[in-house]
Amino acid sequence: MNRLRLWLLAVGGAGLAALLVAACLDLPGFGGRRHPYGDRAVQASLARHTANTISSVNFDQRAYDTLGEMSILFAAVLGCVVLLRQARDEHRDRPEPAEVARPVRRYALLVLPVALVTGLYVVAHGQLSPGGGFQGGVVAATALHLLYLGADYGALERVRPLGVYETSDAVAVCAYLVLGLASVLAGTAFLANTLLPYGTFNTLSSGGTVPLLNAAIGMEVASAVVVLLAHFLDQAVEIEEEQGS
């Protein structure tokens, strides 16, 4: 029986390999500058004064897909929250204070605001330089957890009220939707970038609704990652199983 499966795998694999090779033979040259989709995307993004074409594609030409990505992240974190909740036969201990070496703690306290400001910088300049809501949101969320790495989980819990982050996660998702509906109310399509003036090229106010959508995504990703890590940390550091069971 096993040999039959291996034969099936071999045949299937060979077929796939043949098709892949055939497909690769008429790919355009490696590293070429011309591409039908790329030219139109760059043209559309420059027309709307968005310097970073990727952000223009993410938040303007295909903003509907980003709505899907955002709801995927939201649903994934929701799933983790449900799965990692404290079960009936588990109890929660106070996280004990930990003595970390002084230079490491001082470094964590120093880099904490710097990383947060860098994350906000990456979110704010999403439509100008490489970066955007996703990357900046993750950096801002990771910055917060330097408190856990530099000191202990109790210190992080004192600074991070979890309810606030859950609501800001929901608020950010709604902000993204409201921005989309606003352009419907204004008479054009859902999430169309016709609401705001495009502003002058390569400045913070350029790109119409792209910076606003960027900020909404940044807030959503940051709070989603904080909620996700909170439940992972709770399980790893605080929640204990009853030894009796």
Partner: peptide, 19 residues
């Protein structure tokens, strides 16, 4: 960052039991 990370690796977290 490089120096502090080396300092942490060289025993910066010795006082940490609870994780």
């Amino acid at each position: 960052g490089n120096v502090i990370a080396s300092r942490a690796l060289a025993g910066g977290f010795r006082g940490v039991r609870g994780g």
